[in-house]
Amino acid sequence: MNLPVGNAAAQAAFAAALGGAKLHHAWLLAGPEGVGKAAFARAAARRVLARAGGLGGSPPGLAVPDDHPTARLMEAGSHPDFRVLARLPKDADKPDQDLARSITIAQVRTLQPMFATAPAMGPARVVLIDAIDDLERGGANALLKNLEEPPAGTLFLLVSHAPGRLLPTIRSRCRLLRFERLSDGEVATVLRGQLPEAEEDEIAALVAAADGAPGRALRFAGLDIAGLDAAIARIAESGDPGNAERVKLAKALAGKAAQARYEAFLDRVPAFIAGRAQTRSGPALKVALDAYAAAQDLAGAARGLSLDAQGTVFEMAGIIATLR
């Protein structure tokens, strides 16, 4: 079984607690998005449920043999004592399309029949919420009742990218486990495992785009991020006085077929400008900071208001050109 890469301290802390007299009933897994919190939560759940179901041999840390019944059931998505709450597709017939804005109170209430019975395969069950930041207010209040009076044998694993926004009463019921950004080497390891057919130059480009979060990089896979970054860099270095580069880029990123690359472009420009700002001082730094703020505002407006892609790319390229 592949264990999560990185955040060894968090893994060791949970493993130590698991080996103690009593495991806390609720854990808040907090850190940047895309650094492996959900992957850790699934590995932790697998270990807890395997131990409850009779894990022989005492493998180290969070390890569970692939042929263990718990591992097989979780791989199949059919373990009766493991439940995941996450945002659902807006259209049940199109699971790969847009997700709902939040995890609803109705989803939280689906847990109650399970809590009314004993765990099926041992003395433990696990509820994973990914991410609790997405839980609507009514759902948060409903969950709080379960955290205050946890059903027997139930472990809650709550993934959070922004724990400061959660209800203080929820945070106070949880033990905090912090996750950090991964090193470039760790990110590359994750990417090679997830993208076994990717060439090394694509892996290198994705590592550069990841900012320590392999989950973020995986969203860019197959989108020629290296090509996007090169186009952004050319505009920044030359200022694109004749607008040729920005026109070419705007046309390339327009249209439905280019939507994924367009979204990646909106992500990459602020990150690119931030990188340039780190190398500057004085008036040049102010130019970069102003460009960063403008790029962030435009990217936010483009997503929130569904601005025309071609016009947005052209305007964003103009912001990049001010860095020259």
Rank of each mutant, 00 (worst) to 15 (best):
E237T: 14
K90E: 15
N141V: 05
P283N: 02
L285E: 07
D81W: 09
F156W: 06
A162I: 12
L253V: 11
V287K: 08
A76K: 11
R72G: 01
P4D: 07
L166E: 10
A221R: 07
E33I: 09
A301D: 14
E186K: 03
A140C: 10
A131E: 13
R51V: 15
A260V: 02
D93V: 14
H79Q: 07
R42V: 13
R173G: 03
A236W: 03
I319F: 01
R261P: 00
G212R: 09
F156K: 03
N243V: 00
R175T: 14
R246F: 01
D133C: 02
D133A: 01
R51P: 01
L73D: 02
G275D: 08
K37W: 03
A198D: 08
S281R: 14
E180M: 09
L323N: 05
L206N: 01
S160A: 15
H25L: 08
N7A: 07
P150S: 07
K22V: 13
L177Q: 08
L143F: 05
D184G: 13
F156A: 00
L223G: 04
F220N: 01
P32Q: 09
L62K: 01
K251C: 06
R101F: 10
L182G: 00
L23D: 01
S172W: 10
H79N: 08
P69L: 11
A244Y: 04
D267I: 13
A30V: 11
G54P: 06
A309R: 14
P270Q: 05
R178T: 15
R137P: 02
Q194Y: 13
V287E: 05
P119Q: 06
